[in-house]
């Protein structure tokens, strides 16, 4: 259990750092999607299925989609 949680947290951190560091905005958006996805899984393991569902559908899917659309309107590089 602790291994799963730790690895998820590390994934989240890595995603977050990547989202900040990447200069390609599309990749950064995907990286932030990774954070949400890991968070959703984490929530599930922490016995919060309601939050996990919300996080998965909103954080991982919709927000990423909105970001991607926004990037398409502007420039892809930072």
């Amino acid at each position: 259990m602790i291994i799963i949680i730790t690895s998820l947290v590390i994934t989240m951190l890595a995603g977050a750092i990547a989202a900040c560091a990447l200069r390609d905005l599309l990749s950064a958006a995907i990286a932030s999607c990774l954070v949400s996805l890991a968070a959703a899984i984490l929530f599930y393991f922490l016995q919060a299925p309601d939050v996990a569902m919300a996080e998965a559908s909103i954080g991982a899917a919709l927000v990423t989609a909105i970001l991607v659309i926004a990037i398409r309107r502007t420039e892809r590089q930072e």
Binding site: P49, D50, A52, M53, A54, S57, I58, A61, L62, A65
Partner: peptide, 25 residues
């Protein structure tokens, strides 16, 4: 289904709504 069964199973209006929206997406 998710928002109708919100009071019985995990989920609810927000989650159901988000899923519907992802359908539209």
């Amino acid at each position: 289904y998710i928002f109708l069964h919100g009071h019985l199973t995990p989920g609810g209006g927000f989650q159901g709504g988000a899923i519907i929206a992802s359908g539209f997406l």
